[in-house]
Design a binder for these strands. Structure first.
Lengths: 115, 115
DNA sequence: TTTAATACCTTGCAATACAAAGTACAAAAA
DNA sequence: TTTTTGTACTTTGTATTGCAAGGTATTAAA
């Protein structure tokens, strides 16, 4: 894939990542690697340096909570799960996303000219 | 509307604005106020301080060109129109946007668990 | 001459995605 | 025991960019 197409996609991810995290954690709790895997499966590449600060921000906002869990292979994992506040934020983001999709559709339609 | 909902929408606009501008200028040439009006009609609020630098950036990237036109009421206007390079960028952004919409749909679906 | 309306531009700030490097822990290899 | 490997979490520095706020310029009306 070209570098330009990469940039275009990277640029579009901005502002949607928070939403994606809440979507994923709304289904099940997960630790960072789980989240990265699921994002990758949906063609949304994200690196650690992006995800960790984002999770911390959302936790500090009260949207997420976490618990430590021992791992059989490696250091303990931080499993995040969505809070009530997180769910209500997710509901707002759902609405905002749908509105955004409609907005783009509107922009794509030929302009209506009154003669 | 709540401030939080505003923030959510503002955040989501990021990374999509460039795409929106190209969508609008793909239909017809326009100057800044035209563009702001059309974005507003699509529920995408953007202010001058955001739009002008963005138009300049896209012009410098060769995605847009402009011409001056006298106005009957006020100073001359800078009418922007999309270039060939801009159209090819728009095509890439269309693809990226569709992919993003599909990605979000994918994340919303319940996870498939193999037992 | 002053004021109002319109249009374009700039500055400073805050948020954030990312590359890159660092820290910590556990198990396997030497 | 010591070193290496793999996994996981964290931090730092940079570039981008949306936005509030303020500035400049032109025209026409008061």
């Amino acid at each position: 894939m070209e570098s330009n197409a990469e940039n275009v996609r990277s640029q579009m991810r901005k502002g949607v990542l928070e939403y994606c995290i809440l979507c994923i954690l709304d289904k099940r709790e997960a630790y960072a690697s789980n989240i990265i895997e699921e994002l990758k499966a949906a063609n949304l590449i994200v690196v650690e340096g992006t995800l960790y600060p984002l999770l911390i921000r959302q936790k500090n906002q009260g949207l997420l909570s976490y618990r430590w869990e021992e791992s059989t292979q490696g250091p303990p994992r931080k499993y995040y799960c969505i809070t009530e506040k997180g769910r209500s934020q997710l509901a707002e983001m759902d609405a905002a996303w749908q509105e955004m999709v409609r907005s783009i559709e509107k922009l794509k339609k030929p302009q209506i000219v009154v003669l």
